[in-house]
Design a protein around this nucleic acid. Sequence first.
DNA 1: ATGGCGTCGGAACGACGA
Length: 259
Amino acid sequence: MRIATWNVNSVNARVETVVAWLREHSPDVACFQEIKCEEHKFPALAFEELGYNTAVWGQKSYNGVAILSKFPIGDVRRGLPDPGEEEQSRYIEAVIEAPRPVRVASIYLPNGNPVDSEKFPYKLAWMERLRRHAVDLLRLEESLVLCGDYNVIPDPEDARNPAQWVRDALFQPESRAAWRAFKGIGLSEAHELAGEPPGTFTFWDYQAGAWRRNDGIRIDHHFLSPQAVDRFLGMETHRDARDMEKPSDHVPVVIELTD
DNA sequence: ATGGCGTCGGAACGACGA
């Protein structure tokens, strides 16, 4: 089973690009982030025509996450426990009802910039909520894949030019520590399991020729429970997608598990 | 160098992204 994560940067602005990529690569599951629309404006039909079921948690203009699956989708959860009053659409989880099921979450972690604003503590608090929920999920002892745009650059080797990120929320010591604490509850990172080399980036800014200069960062991650690690076969970071017509600024990352 | 570039809402340009 192949499971993709992709921050699509508006699913409606990008639908032709996204459909073209799905048609070519046909992952069993695709987790989207930043769909930037409410559920009634999600182009479900375009994906159903490719054989996907969909589960969506959207909001107007910003954020929004979705899960596409060629298998039936069950046990959908929208949002983390303990939501605030105006909870942003950043987390959706579901069970992919394959012969050997996998619980999958599509995660759009807050950016947190600027660091001296209320957005940075919001990011850190959200990461702690995610960590606590993941502890509960691990107790289920299932095949579990928590993937998405984590908006964290884990290590200097995950940026072409780490110095330009030192004042950025994505590379703050607190963000990186929260990322390690999350991983430390007993999750494994696909990037490490696959032995991807340094310089495997997943995001390049639209601005200033970042793609042309390969000025990228690695911020889109898959985390696996021990039961999913046992099924891990490999991964692909789809760098070529950054050269598609009307590309997202992120590229898809795909892991493969045994069926 | 906080700008570039892209998207949204709503009909100009500010908010937001990373």
